[in-house]
C-alpha cells in the first residue's frame, strides 16, 4: 500500500522567491489499485509522482510503502515517463535487459526474459533497433517493457501517452489495460485527459490548479475487463466524463 501523508513541495525560483507547487496532499492507494491523478498543467501532479518515486524529496510530509518511508528510488517502483527516457546507446533488447542485469540476473536468463517482454509489448523483430529508429508509440512500449522487466510492484506512469498521437494513444491504453488486468500491479497514473483517466482507473483524483491540492476523488466503478467499444456507448462512462470535466473547470477553453 502507498500512503501519501501531508506531502507538499516548494520550489525556489531563480530570483530566490519560493513557489508552492504542491499543497498538502494525503492519499492512500491500495495494492493492485489503478489510480489516476488528473489536473491542469502546472498543478504539480507529476511532482507528486516523482516524490512517490523517490526522485524528488518532498518539502514536508512522508510517503510510506507498506509502512516503510520512501528515502530514494528503488526497484519496487517502476517509472514510465512521457519522454520515454530510453538509453539511446542501448538497443531495444539492451534497454529491456538493463534492470535485470543490474539486479544480477545471469545474462542468458535476462535475455530470455527480455525477449518475452518484448513479445508482450508486440515488438518482436525490433530487438536490435536503437530507440532513435522507433516511433513514439514503439519507444513507449520499450520503456514499459524495460520497467516491467525488473518486476516492480508499483508502476508510476507520468503522462506516458501524452506525447503520442490520438490513434496510437488509444491503442496503447488498450495494451496497458491488457497487461494490467493480467498481473494487477498498483498503478499511479498521471494524466490531463479525462477520458483516459476514466477509461483506465479504479479511482480518479482531481487536483486543483497551482498549488495542487486534492479537489475531489471519484470512484470509477465501471465493470472490468473494460472494452473501449462497449464503454464509449455506456451511459455511466459518459456521465463520469462529463462530471469530472466540470470539476476540472475546463482550463482548456479558458486559456
Amino acid at each position: 500500500m502507498i500512503a501519501i501523508e501531508r506531502i507538499s513541495k516548494t520550489f525556489e525560483t531563480r530570483r530566490g522567491a519560493s513557489h508552492l507547487a504542491l499543497g498538502e496532499i494525503s492519499l492512500d492507494v491500495a495494492d493492485g489499485e489503478f489510480v489516476s491523478i488528473l489536473g491542469p498543467s502546472g498543478c504539480g501532479k507529476s511532482t507528486l509522482l516523482y516524490i512517490v518515486g523517490g526522485f524528488v524529496p518532498p518539502s514536508t510530509g512522508v510517503v510510506a510503502l507498506d509502512g516503510k518511508p520512501v528515502t530514494g528510488p528503488g526497484p519496487d517502483r517502476g517509472p514510465v515517463f512521457q519522454e520515454f527516457a530510453l538509453f539511446p546507446w542501448k538497443t531495444v533488447l539492451g534497454n529491456v535487459m538493463y534492470g535485470l542485469l543490474e539486479r544480477g540476473t545471469p545474462k542468458v536468463e535476462a535475455e530470455a526474459k527480455a525477449r518475452a517482454l518484448i513479445g508482450l509489448v508486440h515488438l518482436e523483430g525490433y530487438e536490435g533497433f536503437y530507440p532513435k529508429e522507433l516511433s513514439g508509440g514503439m519507444k513507449q512500449r520499450v520503456a514499459i517493457a524495460r520497467t516491467l522487466a525488473y518486476g516492480p510492484s508499483i508502476l508510476l506512469m507520468d503522462e506516458p501517452f501524452g506525447a503520442l498521437d490520438a490513434h496510437t494513444r488509444t491503442g496503447m491504453q488498450n495494451e496497458l489495460l491488457e497487461i494490467w488486468e493480467r498481473d494487477r500491479k498498483t498503478v499511479l497514473f498521471v494524466t490531463h485527459s479525462v477520458e483516459e483517466a476514466v477509461f483506465l482507473s479504479d479511482r480518479v483524483v482531481v487536483l486543483t490548479r497551482s498549488p495542487g491540492r486534492i479537489k475531489e476523488t471519484i470512484r470509477i466503478d465501471l465493470p472490468r475487463p473494460r472494452r473501449r467499444k462497449e464503454l464509449l456507448v455506456d451511459n455511466r462512462y459518459q456521465r463520469l466524463v462529463v462530471e469530472i470535466e466540470a470539476l476540472m473547470d475546463t482550463p482548456a477553453q479558458r486559456r
Binding site: 516523482y50 526522485f55 528510488p73 517509472p79 530510453l86 538493463y98 534492470g99 543490474e102 525488473y150
Partner: peptide
Amino acid sequence: EPKLVWSALAAGTTRRKALLTVVLRAAL
C-alpha cells in the same frame, strides 16, 4: 535528461555507478 538517470536509479543502479554508466554515457 534527469529522467534518464531516474530510470536507472529505479532499476536499482546506485547513484555513483549511474554517474559513470548513465550520465557520462549520455553526455558522451
